[in-house]
Design a protein around this nucleic acid. Structure first.
Length: 116
DNA sequence: AGGGTGACGATCA
DNA sequence: ATGATCGCCACCC
């Protein structure tokens, strides 16, 4: 038997693809954290890789990914811009952090369409 | 191959 | 809340 390819690869590219999908799944007005995105992509513990992907892949709603607890981790002006962008999307803050109670995005579990 | 690094995260003081 | 530490993972020299 040769290794099953179509089951689940785990190349860096595939993981990246999953992270990208997770990030793109965050709607405007919502945010998620680096760690949460990593887990949603089936890659627990890869918060730092989420950052790398965030920097590498262009066209992502990067402002919607914040630190644990809603902290803005981007330094300097970039951080200021992130706040502005989020506020423009309707995200509210609780001091220096995003009000996660209201804006934390919950990722779905590969849900099939359900009957209503 | 080994060591330094980073938009991290959880924990401890 | 702040600062130090340790764990984590891939990337870069």
């Amino acid at each position: 038997m040769r290794p099953r390819k179509s089951v689940k690869k785990n190349t860096s590219d595939d993981k990246t693809a999953r992270v990208v999908r997770a990030i793109r799944a965050i709607p405007a007005g919502k945010v998620s954290s680096y760690g949460a995105v990593a887990r949603a992509a089936g890659w627990a513990g890869a918060a730092r890789q989420v950052v790398q992907i965030l920097r590498k892949v262009h066209g992502l709603p990067w402002q919607r990914v914040v630190g644990s607890g809603g902290a803005i981790k981007l330094p300097g002006e970039s951080g200021a811009e992130q706040r502005i962008r989020l506020r423009m999307e309707g995200v509210t803050f609780r001091g220096a952090r995003v009000d996660m109670k209201q804006h934390e995005h919950k990722f779905g579990r590969s849900r099939r369409k359900s009957k209503g």
